[in-house]
Design a protein around this nucleic acid. Structure first.
Ligand SMILES: [Zn+2]
Ligand SMILES: [Zn+2]
Ligand SMILES: [Zn+2]
Ligand SMILES: [Zn+2]
Lengths: 163, 163
DNA sequence: AAAAATAATGAAATGATATAACATAACTAC
DNA sequence: GTAGTTATGTTATATCATTTCATTATTTTT
């Protein structure tokens, strides 16, 4: 939980992984004076179940199963809140969402998306020093947000494919 | 047209910019034995009109104005073709499309999106050597495609905002 | 504690983006 | 000119996301 890169594709105690993020999220919300209401917490919990990105309507369906209302805004509002507070990230390439695994830092995340097992690993993007940052600086472009995503096949799935 | 980074945000002869890309596109299609049919050429032409990304339905509307059919597949098929041949790129953050300005190279593009004037500048991403590439290599992740996009404000729009 | 302000949720409708499926037409190769 | 292939016509539907307005819950102010 402390700066492990691409945790999703590493062997790890996922139970601990979830609990840790969940606790951090709760602390963060208290610290910021915002409310981690039941829907919001449930959405985060759903996303923490695995490192697979979930679409808004998948989340919506699971919320419905759990007794929440089932109109689209229910999911989108919770997601908007979680994204705004850096607890969840949107994966543009997938139109889907993953729980952040380092919710404290005001980071610009980068993702590796396995197109076979659909797991998404989060790692930190070096916005300023990368090629993009350099070019931006050179032409006076002021970067506010970055989307850095790689699609490919994770090591585990590569091995599976061979056998 | 020759490796100028972030051309969209530089002063340039846009007429020449368009003609050059269009000619390259035509040559490329001939070389590859594929057909740049009227719809495909028209879509590319529409995208070349400016460095602003256009959504599929905007393109569809303009196609209709130009006398083409107006069902979604008309636009999506042409876009699929152009994207497959590297003549157009999809900007994930915007769900929209821009003409490529270096259509020859099998490059992985990076984009800078001005949230004020909506122009999109293309620059080259260094997939392998960047942080993403390094991390990928470290964990054995095989990258097939990258999405690298930065949203922010271009130099011109920053100046405008001040005055 | 009551009133006012703010934040969150309920509910219906619609907007925006993208694809599936199958029929027809146009090119290409032989 | 027939067969194979590629492209287009057309209808329908799938998928993703927001607008709008009413109601309820929570917090703040008095
Ligand atoms: Zn985990
Ligand atoms: Zn995998
Ligand atoms: Zn230009
Ligand atoms: Zn601008």
């Amino acid at each position: 939980m402390t700066g492990v890169p691409a945790q999703a594709f590493s062997k790890h105690d996922h139970g601990a992984c979830c609990r840790s993020v969940m606790n951090t999220a709760r602390r963060l919300c208290v610290a910021r004076g915002v409310r981690l209401t039941p829907v919001r917490e449930k959405v985060l919990e759903l996303l923490l179940e695995s490192h697979v990105a979930l679409g808004a309507y998948t989340i919506l369906a699971r919320l419905a199963d759990a007794g929440f209302r089932s109109q689209p805004p229910v999911a989108y509002r919770a997601l908007d809140f979680l994204v705004a507070h850096g607890l969840v990230h949107r994966v543009e390439k997938l139109n889907a969402y993953v729980a952040c695994n380092q919710p404290q830092a005001g980071h610009s995340p980068a993702f590796m998306i396995c197109s076979h097992c659909h797991q998404v690993a989060e790692t930190v993007g070096k916005t300023r020093s990368g090629v993009l940052g350099k070019t931006a600086q050179a032409i006076g472009f002021d970067i506010q947000h970055t989307v850095i995503e790689a699609e490919g096949v994770c090591a585990t799935c590569q091995k599976r494919a061979v056998s």
